[in-house]
Amino acid sequence: MSVDKATVAKIASLARLRMDDAALDRMVPELNQILGFVEQLGQVDVTGVEPMTAVIAQSLRLRDDVVDADPLTGGGVRDAVLANAPAAEHGFFGVPKVIE
């Protein structure tokens, strides 16, 4: 499978990457080269093989339902949460007005 410019434009839009015509033109052959390379995977016989689900055999640990047990993963840290915000007002993050 190879991608054309329209497809790359659609992917770029899905990925929220603004790309002008020149950038798209440059990207098309690069992506096709990479896709051509990875497509050799299709040759592998995977009959009866389950996709890998865990790198190292282990199952999911669960946390206790305790609020703010560890300050690094708890709430009540609004200043830290907002400290790097490009636009923060009245305790909120600001974004361009959204019309729903």
Binding site: V38, L41, G42, V44, V46, V49, P51, M52
Partner: peptide
């Protein structure tokens, strides 16, 4: 494309 690429890759990873 998910199955052709990602699922296949995770199967190859298992191999």
């Amino acid at each position: 494309y998910y199955d052709a690429y990602y699922t296949q890759a995770m199967k190859v990873r298992a191999l």
